[in-house]
Design a protein around this nucleic acid. Structure first.
Length: 435
RNA sequence: GUGGGAGUAGCUCAGUUGGCUAGAGCACUAGGUUGUGAUCCUGGGGGUCGCGGGUUCAAGUCCCGUCUCUCACCCCA
């Protein structure tokens, strides 16, 4: 029989990898909770339409769809490529019963039918946080803060990562005030989005191909070169543009007050694809720029209503595990959820099988992770096994156990050991010396 | 969909102008060790050299095809 290989773009999580994944997820969970978010989840597949109604049919080629043989209506299913549509569906369903703002997070497993490359797989985990029901810029600030709060908790400094922030609505107003037609905006977004991948001359050439009007081209080039919010101020030529600008200034001010101002920069080139964003948008990158974005998000005030619900404002972000893990490995900050045993019981005398099993059983029933060797082998080998399983303590049961009910308890971290009564120890294992 | 790179043990790799039974380190495993765990010593298992064809007395090595993986482009919710 031929061996069947793992599917391209998927990962096997052996215990070592699983420990890393759990460590990452645990960090996401802790930071979510301390920022006031509660966890939710949805099904791993949905109706295909849930994704196509928002993004159009071309998305079908980028997700895994499944014919539903059991369905009478013939509607196809799709494995979730993102969780936001599920979130919108769930929130819409109970919108009148949920207290606002709704602050939810999730760590869904997602699948996309793409060609895998560095930092991008076909199956991955993505931390999502969303704040629904508030149009306050404080909500945008808290969303961005939560992302940075997590990265900062891992030891990443402002010199390692940066949140580049802009505003989709401000940019739109700005462009229209400069004379661009509303239907040309998407083209300009693509232009700005591609700018970082091009040299200056490549970009000039590309921009000239896209914008035929010389005056507009000049304005576009000047806009693209803007480095700070201050430079933008003279270009504000409409009330709507000024409002978007003021909101963005408020956002930066709030992030500074939250203590993460040095992680944040204005970058007019952040537009987040062609998705559903309506206000502030951001992406977090490593400063080394060798990796794709770690995290991306923004305000999406029209999504719930576009999916059949009421007009409810919302903001949030997604952070994938793949790029994150690459960056952490690069910086030497990758950790794993250490597995360990509380006790490893060493049997130094074959006559003690029953006594050893009794001790193991009693320790386990009190909640202590406890193991022993299946083989009757030398004490030295059993110590090796205990060390290999990361046991905190070993208990040696041997001659003195038979003669006077004594065991030897050893602290594996510092090597100290002590003789004590087996019965007393089992009654209260927590009062272990040196632990 | 387009282009580059790479496929030899579980992992990282070596393998000469084609030439004995294809190797090393790590990992795994057993013992040296009848009560003490990092970097002790000795042994053992594990390979369709990605796959198929060709050239040759002889192919891991040369030629052709093919598959897979990987990196980049496109796209990126």
């Amino acid at each position: 029989m031929p061996k069947i290989p793992p599917v391209k773009g998927t990962r096997d999580f052996y215990p070592a990898e699983m420990a890393i994944r759990n460590w990452i997820a645990q960090g996401w969970r802790e930071v979510s909770q301390r920022n006031g978010f509660v966890e939710y989840d949805g099904p791993i597949f949905e109706y295909l339409q849930l994704y196509t109604q928002k993004s159009g049919d071309e998305i079908v080629s980028q997700l895994f769809s499944i014919p539903d043989r059991a369905a009478r209506d013939g509607r196809d299913l799709a494995i979730r490529p993102e969780i936001t549509p599920t979130l919108a569906r769930m929130v819409n369903q109970q919108i009148n019963a949920l207290p606002r703002p709704i602050k939810w997070f999730s760590i869904p497993r997602l699948c996309r039918a793409e060609r895998p490359q560095r930092g991008r797989l076909r199956e991955f985990f993505q931390w999502n946080i969303d704040i629904i029901g508030s149009d306050s810029v404080l909500a945008d600030a808290e969303s961005i803060f939560t992302a940075i709060d997590y990265l900062r908790s891992l030891g990443l400094k402002a010199s390692d990562v940066v949140a580049r922030i802009s505003s989709r609505s401000m940019l739109a107003e700005l462009l229209m005030a400069l004379g661009f037609a509303r239907e040309d905006l998407d083209k300009i977004y693509v232009l700005l989005d591609k700018r970082p991948k091009m040299t200056e001359s490549e970009f000039s050439k590309y921009a000239a191909e896209q914008i035929s009007d010389a005056d507009l081209l000049d304005k576009m080039m000047r806009l693209e070169a803007v480095q700070s919010l201050d430079e933008l101020e003279p270009m504000l030529q409409s009330d709507a543009a000024r409002k978007g600008y003021a909101d963005l200034c408020e956002l930066f001010k709030t992030l500074k007050a939250l203590g993460v101002g040095d992680y944040c920069e204005f970058d007019i080139k952040i537009v987040r694809g062609l998705a559903y964003y309506t206000g502030p948008v951001f992406e977090i990158f490593d400063r080394g720029k060798s990796l794709r974005a770690l995290c991306g998000g923004g305000r999406y005030d029209n999504l719930l209503s576009s999916m059949g619900g009421p007009q409810v404002p919302a903001t949030g972000f997604g952070m994938g595990d793949v790029v994150l893990e690459l960056l952490l490995a690069e910086k030497g900050l990758l950790r794993s959820e250490a597995s360990h045993l509380d006790f490893f019981v060493i049997n130094a005398d074959t006559e003690l099988d029953d006594k050893m099993l009794m001790a193991v059983s009693r320790l386990r029933s009190q909640g202590y992770a406890t193991a022993f060797s299946y083989k009757k082998t030398g004490v030295g080998k059993q110590f090796k096994q205990a060390a290999a399983q990361n046991a905190r303590h070993t208990i040696v049961m041997g001659r003195e156990t038979i003669e006077s009910n004594q065991i030897t308890l050893k602290n594996m971290a510092d090597g100290s050991q002590k003789e004590l009564s087996l019965d007393k120890f089992l009654e209260n294992p927590e009062e272990i010396p040196n632990s």
